[in-house]
Design a protein around this nucleic acid. Structure first.
Lengths: 231, 231
DNA sequence: TGGATGATTTTGGTACGCCATATTATGGTA
DNA sequence: TACCATAATATGGCGTACCAAAATCATCCA
């Protein structure tokens, strides 16, 4: 669908954003939130029509998404939305565990209460979104939580990697947060990360972050087993 | 790939790679091994002439490299070869440490002597290259060592991330391996990783891998301080 | 029925043109 | 001479048209 109804603010649409970047965001969003499904073919000229841009733009966008891993290119058949199998999802969660664990440890070692405060703020937003059944909000604020985790210790490269991987499992995320008790367990686990950071307990923060991702991964595996019979 | 062994004789040797991929490799290689230097402008029409391809291809290649982090795009000025500063290099080494440490631990937990044997093989190749002062060989076999580390435990996603990050610090790598004693210290550190893996000592393998990257990072920082006055 | 043949679709690739902006000459005036 | 307005150039951003090769689908004939 046309999901251009997302204008949450009086965003000035002109500055710096090139047409290509706008198209890139649109297509990425369309893939991430399921308008294009895994395995769907992305026919260049169709996309041109749907986006209202030229083939030049569409091709660049497809190449970009390809290198992000959201799109796969079958030789002589063209681009399709990348399919995520069991194993790959597991690996992505594993990498996130390693990097988020690392960031959590670094945060704890800063001994700066402001970090824990900021994380608590995001955590409260997450709980609030859960209460309002606003799942998009849960995802957004969870992202914000982790962004704080990484940017508090100036690890923007690692944050970039995590972000890159996260878009590939976005539809899994939106399903894991909807499972039973996740509205309680998820924030509780994240609270343990924050507590350890506040205590300056690097090892504890590391383990808590790893455990949180591990539990998300387990749920994701279960979800995948449920709806994906085979690859 | 295509092993339809019908009439292989007449089968025209088709370069499975598309022109775009060829161009991508060429430009990436040109950046990685210093033909294009950090900060150099990459003028589209010039690249067309140098590569002998159309502007469409060049633009797609530039977009791809941009998302790899090898090329930066200045608004209203166009693409340049990305500059790597101190801090970013440090972060990249840190991420590699986390992921290679993870892979090393997983290898150790496999308790499969064949893995350690394969790693020893790469290690011997590295030593051989050092003896022959073949620095390109050192880099290639070091890559091969780590690829074995990741692929032995089927972590191709993490390997992809490490690879992506590694190209951005390639020129640093080629300088760190040329520093004094690195021909002895480097392989010795890697041997400790292999030993721990052979012993099935996950924690030891993890620490050994982290330490190896940490020492490479330290050398890289020193090298950067030497030749890079300021950002 | 089965296979050769042709039409269609789609990607891969090229060439060219137009516009907007940024930089650099350039030239004229105080 | 100093300085500012203007023109020329360079370059990226974007669009269109076109062609070739490959895959797929439809058709028709032995």
């Amino acid at each position: 669908m046309n999901d251009d109804g997302l204008s949450t603010a009086i965003r000035v649409e002109r500055p710096a954003k090139t047409l290509r970047e706008l198209a890139l965001d649109k297509v990425r969003e369309a893939i991430v939130n399921g308008y294009f499904r895994p395995g769907d073919r992305l026919v260049e000229r169709d996309l041109c029509a749907q986006l209202g841009v030229s083939r030049t733009i569409v091709r660049e966008v497809l190449r970009h998404l390809e290198s992000e891993g959201l799109v796969a290119n079958l030789p002589n058949k063209g681009p399709i939305v990348a399919q995520l199998n069991h194993d790959e999802a597991k690996q992505i969660y594993e990498i996130r565990a390693a990097l988020e664990g690392m960031a959590a440890r670094l945060c704890a070692e800063q001994n700066n209460p402001a970090i824990a405060d900021a994380l608590d703020k995001s955590l409260e937003d997450i709980r609030q979104s859960y209460r309002g059944k606003d799942m998009a909000g849960v995802l957004a604020h969870t992202s914000s939580f982790y962004q704080t985790l990484f940017s508090s210790v100036d690890r923007h490269v690692a944050w970039g990697v995590v972000n890159l991987l996260t878009v590939r499992i976005n539809h899994l995320r939106s399903m894991t947060i909807k499972t039973r008790d996740r509205d309680v367990q998820g924030p509780a686990q994240m609270a343990r990360i924050v507590d350890a950071i506040r205590r300056g307990d690097g090892e504890g923060a590391y383990r808590a972050a790893m455990e949180h991702v591990a539990s998300a991964s387990a749920i994701a595996q279960a979800v995948l087993s449920d709806r994906q019979p085979a690859d």
